[in-house]
Design a protein around this nucleic acid. Structure first.
Length: 373
DNA sequence: CGGATTGATATG
DNA sequence: CATATCAATCCG
């Protein structure tokens, strides 16, 4: 494009008529007018000429940033997607879906020790999230979906603060109850058991919305939303596990994607083993960017370990133990104890001992309250 | 360990 | 009065 430059008419007289010799006043006026003219031309150039693309990348960046500042005069749209830090977990929260995008944690045998109790803690909206972008307990109530921890309560017994943090709804997704209490629970127990074999275990968990092919042959991402706040129900859940050796080097990694539905004892964890790259692609997130650097040394978790979840009998014995521990009446204690026979389970020495101890404890207690009332 | 539901009580 | 909170009970 050619620049259009017109000579201002007010200068014509001066230039055509020549300078008035001896008139410094006039010379001053002329110089003044020329300066003014140059200024005007430059201004026209600034207005009319589209700047040529600078070859320098840095210059380009600078220009875009400067233009961006003008464009975003009224602020940068804010989706609140800053990484959020808590006592014992870190997460990215999705304000649109009202669930986390991912939740990261680190556990070790030492970190798992503790006595923080989930009975003294309640699910609550995350106080750090703007209310209109937050899920509420009411959204889950009678929805048919349970509130599933991503960073499990059982990984946060170290302190009551960590326990309470894990009950923030930013750490929760709508999860099938049977899945939550069953397969997913066993997966979480498996992760905790890994700390007996490996010094440190790093875990990232989160929800996934996978596309399905509909009758028309097209693909759709479809998910239910619950409650007034339209909390998104994930179609699947993922968990990435990294275990370290004693030198604190990454030893093995496993990525799993599990459907958000009941999963029975007939399924193995390895049935849900997936390629990390594929999971990341589907999620749109590079989950462990710094693991890539040492990828060559990181083995498949299920080859280093067997990726075997706790079995049915072991599992049922496990939570019967928990129930015996929490029994507060003799009647309750007996009810739980009778479950063993119903399920044809044989109590081990620990369970028998626990039962005996609890029985004498509760007998004593009920004698006392019986007398006082 | 992972949860929901219900009913009594407290509260504005 | 309706809603919030807690304790008790229950299930896999």
């Amino acid at each position: 494009m050619k620049k259009v430059r017109t000579r201002p008419t007010y200068l014509k007289g001066v230039l055509h008529g020549g300078l008035a010799i001896g008139s410094l006043w006039m010379l001053g006026r002329v110089l003044d007018a020329r300066a003014k003219y140059r200024e005007m031309v430059e201004e026209q150039e600034r207005q009319l000429i589209i700047p040529t693309l600078p070859t320098d990348d840095e210059e380009m960046k600078r220009m875009k940033a400067a233009r961006g500042q003008e464009i975003l005069k009224y602020g940068i749209p804010d989706n609140g997607k800053d990484v959020r830090y808590y006592s014992n977990h870190v997460l990215l929260y999705d304000q649109q879906k009202r669930i986390p995008t991912w939740v990261a944690e680190h556990i070790s045998a030492n970190i798992l020790k503790g006595s923080a109790d989930r009975r003294h803690v309640k699910f609550r909206p995350d106080p750090e999230v703007e209310e209109r972008f937050s899920a509420q307990n009411g959204d889950y109530w009678r929805s048919g979906w349970s509130r599933g921890h991503m960073a499990p309560a059982g990984d946060n017994r170290k302190s009551q603060e960590a326990m309470q943090d894990s009950f923030n709804l930013t750490n929760v997704v709508p999860q099938n109850l049977e899945n939550n209490a069953g397969f997913w629970n066993r997966l979480e127990i498996y992760c905790r058991d890994l700390t007996n074999k490996f010094s440190n275990v790093f875990i990232i968990s989160g929800p996934l919305m996978l596309p399905i092919v509909d009758e028309d042959g097209n693909k759709y991402v479809k998910y239910q939303v619950i409650g007034e706040n339209n909390v998104a129900v994930p179609t699947h859940l993922f968990k990435v596990i990294i275990v370290e050796d004693k030198k604190r080097k990454p030893k093995a990694m496993g990525a799993f994607v599990v459907p958000n539905e009941p999963i029975g004892y007939d399924k193995k964890l390895t049935d849900y083993l997936v390629d990390l790259e594929a999971l990341e692609k589907s999620l749109g997130v590079t989950l462990v960017p710094k693991l890539i650097e040492t990828e060559g040394n990181v083995k498949n978790l299920c080859k280093v370990d067997n990726c075997k979840l706790i079995g049915r009998k072991e599992f049922e014995l496990y939570f019967i133990g928990r129930k015996l521990e929490s029994a507060n009446t003799l009647h309750r204690l007996e009810t739980v104890w009778n479950e063993l026979e119903e399920k044809k389970l044989k109590p081990d020495r620990y369970l028998k001992e626990l039962y005996k101890q609890k029985k004498s404890e509760l007998t004593e207690q009920e004698k006392l309250t019986g007398k006082s009332t």
